[in-house]
Structures are given as structure tokens and as C-alpha cells.
């Protein structure tokens, strides 16, 4: 395993929180190293359309927005590596970051690993992933031209995906386990007025059926217990996200759901020198613009920490 020189700042994650932290710390001359994680740009890049990010009145795709974040971050000289952190060990006042292929020493760490898409957690989901089951409407929507598909979920992502997928599919059925939706009213209105969209609530997917590809799904009504089998060629899953904090659980305190705990009004974690920002510590808002603001806070908290450390 390769060892490298001591870093000032390692930023784990490359979504809005991580890249904003990188912009600020790079601008302050701290020469941050961004470990991008498995999906550079984070979960936002699968959003076909981001309508609420200030500064983009005409809306922008998540992919393009994160591309702009990245270019801005590079302009300030931040460095990038496509690595996923497996473990972090505290060694005196520094940290040893282990990516499995590399060990990186750093004086400070910003955790901005965000959240990962939740799976349905049924055995047939893995079997058909890439063969009808997908977590990315913008990536795979075109494979479902003139086909009937399901979108599972009731938040903004699910509803946006459903509307986006009507460009290709002959029918999109939204399957949601509750009788209310978390998606904002504007998104709901778009979906409700779309003649290609149908609704099944409160239903859940019990099983995915098919041979080589998906041909249908078994659904169960959560109120009555009734089951039904419906034909479909694709199932897009958008049922929320879980914080990606597993690698840091021995380093910082988390709540029972895995969200990293930070001091109120700051991004300081239970371990001095380690800061957390964005969706990995936000069980409430989960918005790109909040994550970006949080990333700025983490950078400023970190700069103050380094300033105090140097004065000691």
C-alpha cells in the first residue's frame, strides 16, 4: 500500500457539500485533496432537472450543475482522486485515511460523503439490476421506449423521474407505500397532469418477476394486504437515501440512523479536526443548496481549527 506525504485537508465526497468545502479551502491556500467516492458529483448527478438551485432560473440538469461545481473547484487548485474511504484512524492529532489501495495522512478531514440510494432490499432486485431495474432515469430511460414501467417512491426524485420517463415509456405507474407524498406540490402537479402517469398507493413491491429481464412485479397493498401482479418491463427505484457514514463510525459519533452528529450551528464532529457537512449529517433538509452552504461552513470551521492549532 502506497504512503504519501501529510495532507492539510482531505475532503471525502464530491457532491455540493464536498466541492464547496474544496472551493473554500483551496481558495484559502490549504491545497485540499478531494476523495471523490464511487460516484463523482454525488447523488445529484442522477437528477434530470434541478429547478430550485439559485442562480439557474431556466433549471439545470444535476450532471451539468455538478460539472460546473467541479470546474470551479479545479480552478482554485483542489486535487482529486477517485477513491472511496474504507476506514479512518486517529493518530495523535492527525488522521490515517485508508482507501484499500492507498493510505493517506492528513491533519484534518471533512466528511461530505452524502447519502446513497436505498434499495428495495428484495432478492430479485439485485438479480435484475441493469436488466430492468435501475436507479437512474436519465441513464437508462431510453431503454424503455414504448414500454410500461414502474417508479417506486414518493419523494421529489421519484416524481421527477416518473415525469422524465414519460418521454420514453408508454405508461409510468408510480408505486408508493404511503397515502401521502413528500414531493413538493409543483412536482406533484406536473405528474398529476401527465396522462401517461398512473398511481398505486399505498402499495409496495414484494417481488420482481422475469427471466432474463423484468416482465412484471408482485405488489402488496399495505392497508388491505391484497396482492396483485402487474406486467412491466422496468422498475425505477427512488425510495430515499441513507447516510454514507459507515467508514467513520469508529471516528465520530452518529445517531441511530447513521447521520453524523455535529455541534449545533457548526460542522464540528465529536472528534477535533474532523468536520461533517451535507447529507451525511442532515436528516432534515437534504437539499443541494443546503449541502453547499454546509460545505462552506465546514471549510470555515476547519480554517479556524487550523489557525488555533498553529498558534498552540
Amino acid at each position: 500500500m502506497e504512503n504519501v506525504d501529510m495532507e492539510n485537508v482531505v475532503i471525502a465526497g464530491s457532491g455540493p457539500a464536498g466541492l464547496t468545502a474544496a472551493i473554500y479551502t483551496a481558495r484559502s491556500g490549504l491545497n485540499p485533496l478531494v476523495l471523490e467516492g464511487l460516484v463523482p458529483g454525488g447523488q445529484l448527478i442522477v437528477s434530470p432537472e434541478v429547478e430550485y438551485y439559485p442562480g439557474f432560473p431556466e433549471s439545470i440538469s444535476g450532471m451539468e450543475l455538478m460539472d460546473r461545481f467541479r470546474k470551479q473547484t479545479e480552478q482554485f487548485g483542489a486535487r482529486f482522486k477517485m477513491e472511496v474511504i474504507e476506514k479512518v484512524k486517529r493518530v495523535n492529532d492527525t488522521f490515517e485515511v485508508d482507501t484499500g489501495t492507498e493510505r493517506i495522512e492528513t491533519g484534518t478531514l471533512i466528511i461530505a460523503t452524502g447519502a446513497e440510494a436505498r434499495r428495495l432490499d428484495i432478492p430479485s432486485e439485485s438479480k435484475f439490476y441493469g436488466k430492468g431495474v435501475s436507479g437512474c432515469a436519465t441513464c437508462d430511460g431510453a431503454f424503455f421506449r414504448d414500454k410500461e414501467i414502474l417508479v417506486v417512491g414518493g419523494g421529489n426524485t421519484a416524481i421527477q423521474d416518473a415525469v422524465f420517463l414519460t418521454r420514453f415509456a408508454s405508461k409510468v405507474t408510480i408505486v408508493h407505500r404511503r397515502d401521502y407524498f413528500r414531493a413538493v406540490p409543483a412536482e406533484m402537479e406536473k405528474a398529476k397532469s401527465n396522462p401517461k402517469i398512473e398511481w398505486l398507493i399505498p402499495w409496495v413491491v414484494e417481488e420482481i418477476i422475469g427471466d432474463n429481464t423484468v416482465t412484471g412485479a408482485v405488489l402488496k397493498n399495505r392497508e388491505t394486504g391484497e396482492t396483485q401482479q402487474i406486467p412491466c418491463s422496468g422498475i425505477f427505484v427512488a425510495i430515499g437515501h441513507d447516510p454514507q457514514s459507515e467508514a467513520f463510525k469508529e471516528l465520530v459519533e452518529t445517531d441511530k440512523n447513521g447521520f453524523i452528529l455535529v455541534e449545533a450551528g457548526s460542522t464540528r464532529t465529536s472528534t477535533p479536526g474532523v468536520f461533517a457537512c451535507g447529507d451525511v449529517c442532515d436528516p432534515v433538509y437534504k437539499q443541494a443548496v443546503v449541502a453547499a452552504g454546509h460545505g462552506c461552513m465546514a471549510a470555515m470551521d476547519l480554517e479556524q481549527y487550523i489557525y488555533i492549532q498553529r498558534r498552540k
Partner: peptide, 25 residues
């Protein structure tokens, strides 16, 4: 790759013959 419905299509060849293929991430 006939049943693939997720990008990317990744194909592994040994001596010109397909030995494995995966769909999606």
C-alpha cells in the same frame, strides 16, 4: 448483452471470445 437495460455495457474478452459481461454500475 441482449438482456441489458442499464449503462454501461461492460464486456470481457479472452482470445476474442466473450467470457463475461455486466450491465449498469
Amino acid at each position: 448483452c441482449a438482456s441489458f437495460m442499464g449503462l454501461p455495457f461492460t464486456v470481457y474478452f479472452k482470445n476474442g471470445k466473450v467470457v463475461a459481461a455486466t450491465s449498469s454500475i
